[in-house]
Design a protein around this nucleic acid. Sequence first.
DNA 1: CCCTGATACTTTGTTGAACAAGGTAAACAG
DNA 2: CTGTTTACCTTGTTCAACAAAGTATCAGGG
Lengths: 111, 111
Amino acid sequence: MNFDREFLTGSLGTVILALVGERPMYGYEMLQESQRRSGNRLLMKEGTLYPALHQMERAGLLAGEWRRGESGRARKYYRLTPKGRRQAQSKRRQWQAIAAAMRGILGDQHG
Amino acid sequence: MNFDREFLTGSLGTVILALVGERPMYGYEMLQESQRRSGNRLLMKEGTLYPALHQMERAGLLAGEWRRGESGRARKYYRLTPKGRRQAQSKRRQWQAIAAAMRGILGDQHG
DNA sequence: CCCTGATACTTTGTTGAACAAGGTAAACAG
DNA sequence: CTGTTTACCTTGTTCAACAAAGTATCAGGG
């Protein structure tokens, strides 16, 4: 399997980039959003998400900013950097290629 | 990400099960078939495929049989066991769930 | 006022899928 | 008899995802 070498960071990263691409979002919110939007199919784990966010911030794809709103504890909001925006597009296209490839193999089959 | 714990064996395994589900096939043929059908997008590596085949045979999903045809060297043909057939269906459904989940997150976005 | 549960972020240690890179060997074309 | 293609196999490495645990803040109930 190739599709870039990091298909897993790939698929998690694709989700993160897509979510943050819509509006600034904090980690815990991403967990809930991805779960809600996927119809409870996609259950990211905290131990997977947060390290990924840190790594993507280090890699210059995301920019994080602490905010403490009127209620609750402080949240770290992430937004896309320009580099992150390019990566988001690239990842989305890659996903579409994967989906197309899988259709080519699974698609023409019964049920 | 969950979708079973082994999404990677998952996606490779899904491809193998789908191919062998159509007709008995040998390893090298799977490499070419998956590449051809995916429009050169899916490039499985031998070092990934063969160990996976052995593991799936040990797990009782595939049954292998050596045949030496009229030409070329001996090939090991694999076919699905009943257990493998059930697994193939399950994996295909899982893939469709993944694709649906990703559409839920990426789908409603611009190109 | 404590206690629970939800929110919110973090870290450490483990697992194992995929890969890189090598090998063996038979058939065949030049 | 040499190189290429076919065909299979193996060892060692990497690193994404997970499990499991911890820290801290806030809300609501008893």
